[in-house]
Every structure is written in C-alpha cells, then in structure tokens.
Write a protein that binds this DNA or RNA. Structure first.
Lengths: 143, 143
DNA sequence: TTAAAATAATTGTATAATACAACTATATGA
DNA sequence: TCATATAGTTGTATTATACAATTATTTTAA
C-alpha cells in the first residue's frame, strides 16, 4: 500500500482544476462558451434531446441545462424544436453553424493540448488519455 | 502522429473539470473551503508569506488571495502578522488550528480518492500521479 | 370524465470563485 | 521632498452552478 501516489493525485488534482479553469475561461462570449461545450458535444454525439435528458446525461441540474441550451439557441448553434407528442417538451438539435463552431472549438483545444504535450512520448499521451477516461468513469457514480 | 490520444485528453479533460468541480463543491463553509485549500497548503509548505508572494505562487490575482487569506484568518486557520520592516505589508502564517484543519481536509480527500481508485493497480496510481504532475507543470507556463 | 398528481421546462434567486479597477497607506528614489 | 511605485483592500462584474417557485401540459385514479 503505497500512499505516495494517491497523495500526489490528491494534490495535483486540485492544482489541475485551478489551472485548467484559469486557462479555459472565456475571452470572447460571441462564440461557443466553455460551459456549453459539453452540451453541444452531447447533441452532436447522441442526436437531439430535451433538457431533462441532457441534464441527466451531463449530470447537471435541469435549470443549468435550460440556460445553456437557451444561450446556444440564441447564438444559432442549436434549434429548439417542439415535441409533437408532448407540448411541454422540446428537442434541441445541433445546427450546421453549431456543428462548425463545435469543430472549431474542439480543434482549438486540440491544438493547445498538442502544443502543450509536444515533448511527451506517444505512450505517455496514450496512458494519460486512458487514465483520465478511467478516472472520469469512476467519478461518474460519485455525483 | 496519433491524434486519438490527444483527442481523448481534450474531451476527458473537460469532463474531468465538470465532475471534480461538482463533487468537491463545499457543503459546510464552517471548515476549510475548497478555494482556500491550496493557499493553506502553500503556507504550510513554504512558510509564511504576504498576499503578493502568495498570489504569484498560486498564479491568482492579488485581490483573490487577499479575500481567501481574510477568510482563513477569520476562521483562525492563519494569523496575519504585520511586517516589521514595511508597514504596508503582512505575513500570513498557518496556525495550529489551521494545520490540523488542513491535515483533516487532505485526509478526507485522500480517503475519497483511495476509495475511488481502490481497484486500480499500483502502477496505474503511480502513472496517473506522475502524468498529472507533468501535465500541471506544462500548464504552469500557460497561465 | 374530471380533479389530483406528476412532469418538462423556464425563471427567480443565491452562492462560489474569480478578475479588474479604484483606492489607501506606505515606501523609494530622483 | 515630492513624484512614483508598491502592498494590500474593497467595489463591482462575470461565470457557472443549484435549489425553489412557477407555468403549462400530461397522466392517473376516483
């Protein structure tokens, strides 16, 4: 039982959150805003859905998702389509503009990370990705 | 040039920030508050310092650190000692109560992480810790 | 078959964490 | 010694979020 690694993770996780939050905070709210990134990603990945479903998938409060969706709609990144079956509910679907913006946003993040990790070897990239994913899977149940 | 791993990191990093922020948000602001954790850690590690120095070390705005320090002082976790040489400035030093609270806070985080990663093998723990640290070091220059 | 309960979404309000700008008090240096 | 620089605080704004109240609609049960 080696506590050292776990202690490192404990501390470095706090530092990571700080730094990433600081770096990714939005400069121009004209474009895709950080907080709505995962919402748009989800719509792109899984197709259209209502606020309730999205909130469950993203593990966020419905009200939070409702606001994020409204903001995406206002920018033209998603379309709000009334559900034909249930007049209370809607489907949000990503628009072409939204898909383009998502691609650009992802690309910008990708490039930042590529540059940041340019001197890591391939195995480190792969390991870090896998472990992050595994950590996130573990976290999922904790919210 | 394998883009896949970098794309995984790009996405999982966003998910990680979301989930960790959600899980670590404070329930009882009587005790040590998440945002001040690294400040108290820093004082514990490097000894007493003024707001300016701490802000540089933590890469935060002076005003942010000033408030965090004031809140720590109000809880009795740090003492605010006037600098004898310069009447404009102060040194914050961790108190015994503060040190105890820091230890408890760290221990609670440690236990959460231990439980979360109980089924990882030792090598994964070690790797994840090392890579997180390495990633944070890379981020440091980007703020 | 209608009244009560449940549900989808929005909106009001509150909080945490932060940065930037304005300000105060003190120190430095030309 | 006065102008400028510096340490720190406080005012204000923003982002991201949750919880509570509300509205509109649907489902259920008497």
């Amino acid at each position: 039982m080696n506590e050292k690694s776990l202690k490192t993770i404990e501390l470095e996780m706090a530092v990571l959150i700080r730094r990433v939050n600081s770096i990714t905070s939005n400069r121009n709210p004209e474009n895709l805003v950080r907080s709505a990134y995962l919402l748009l990603h989800q719509l792109s990945l899984k197709g259209s859905a209502g606020v309730k479903t999205l909130a469950e998938e993203l593990q966020l409060d419905i009200s939070t998702v409702s606001r994020q969706a409204a903001s995406l709609e206002q920018k033209g990144y998603v379309a709000k389509v009334p559900s034909p079956l249930d007049k209370r509910s809607y489907f949000y679907e990503i628009t072409d503009v939204g898909a383009t913006e998502l691609r650009k946003y992802k690309q910008a993040r990708f490039e930042k990370i590529s540059k940041l990790l340019h001197d890591w070897d391939e195995e480190e990239h792969e390991n870090f990705g896998k472990l992050l994913k595994k950590f996130n899977d573990a976290l999922k149940g904790e919210i």
